[in-house]
Amino acid sequence: MEKTQSAGRMAGLDILAAGRRTQNVKSRLKHWRTLNAFALVYICEGSGSFESNETAEVNVKAGDCFFLFPGVSHFYGPPGQTIWKEIWVLFRGNLAEYMLKENTLNPSFPVTSLHATRRSEFQRNLESLVELYRNKANEFRLRSTALLYNCLLQSTLPLDSPPPISGDSILLDEMKLILRRHMGSSRKIPGYFHNSRYSYNTLRMEFQRLTGESPGQYLRELRMQHAEEQLLWSGLSITDICMGLGFTDSRYFSRAFKKHAGSSPREFRQRYHLIR
C-alpha cells in the first residue's frame, strides 16, 4: 500500500502546456474564458486585476500568483496602457483534484501573494518548467512534475511559512524512500519502481544527476550500513542478516561487506560486537 501511494504521488500531475506571455491592454482577455483544466499564472512584472464567477475583482501585482479552475469562468489582465509579464502552466491530475477537494486549492480564494523569500525560487522553478516543456527533454515529465509540485506547495503555504525544500529534493526523497522500503528485497531494482509512470532508466539518470551515484550504489551502501548495525547490536546470525537484506548468496554478501568495512562480517562482529 505504501509503495503504491508513493508511486501515485510521483504521477499525480500531468502538465498540458506552459509558457511566458506579456500582456497589455490590447492583448488582455476581451471576454470571459472557461478552461477544462487547471492553470497556474504567476505575475513576474506589472500589476492588474483578476476576477471570476467565484470571486469579485481582485487587484494583483508582481509576486502574486492565481489559479484558474476547470469550469470556472475568469477574466484578468493589466489596466490602461500598462503591461504585465506572466508565466503560466496548464495542468490536470489526481493531485490537483485532491487539493481542490480538500480546499487547498479554492476557486473562492484563487490569488496568493508569495512570501518575499519564496519568489525567486518560485519563478526560477517555473522558468525551468517552461524550458523543459519547450525543449521536450527526455526527462521532461519527471522533472517538470517535481517543479510544479514544488510550486503548488509554495503557493499554498501560509504567508509567514519558511520556504519549502526544492522540487528536486522532493523527488529525490521519494526515490530514496522507495529504495529504503525495498532494502530487504531480492528483486532487481527496476521492479521497485514498476508503478511509476516514468521508465527506470529515466529515474536512474535523475537519481545519478542529483546524488552523483546510481540507485544501486545508494542501496548497496544503505544495506552495508544496516548490516554493520545488526552485526554490532543484534544476536542474529550472519546468514539471517544476509538474507534479511535481500542477499541470496552469503559469499557475495561477505565480499561486498569486506569491500565496504575492510573486514569480513565475522571479523567485524568479533572485533566490535557490543552484545555480551
Rank of each mutant, 00 (worst) to 15 (best):
M1A: 15
T4H: 15
A7D: 10
G8H: 06
G12V: 09
D14E: 14
I15T: 11
A17V: 04
G19T: 07
R20C: 12
T22Q: 14
S27P: 09
R28S: 14
R28Y: 06
H31W: 10
H31K: 14
R33D: 09
R33H: 15
T34P: 00
L35P: 00
N36I: 05
C44R: 03
E51K: 12
N53F: 01
K61M: 03
A62V: 04
F66A: 01
S73G: 15
Y76H: 13
P78F: 13
T82N: 09
I87V: 14
V89K: 04
L90H: 11
G93P: 08
A96N: 06
M99H: 09
L100V: 07
T104H: 03
P110A: 10
V111M: 10
L114I: 12
E121S: 07
E121P: 00
Q123R: 13
R124Y: 06
N125I: 01
L126W: 04
L129S: 08
L132E: 11
L132M: 04
L132Y: 09
A137D: 14
L147F: 07
L147V: 03
Q154W: 03
S155P: 06
T156A: 04
P158Y: 14
P163M: 07
P163R: 10
I165Q: 11
G167P: 10
R180K: 15
R181E: 15
P190D: 06
Y192M: 13
S196D: 05
S196C: 13
N201I: 08
M205I: 05
Q208K: 09
T211D: 05
G212D: 01
Q217G: 04
L231P: 00
G235R: 11
D240E: 03
C242E: 01
G246I: 08
D249I: 12
D249R: 10
F257Q: 05
K258N: 15
S264T: 15
P265C: 13
Q270F: 07
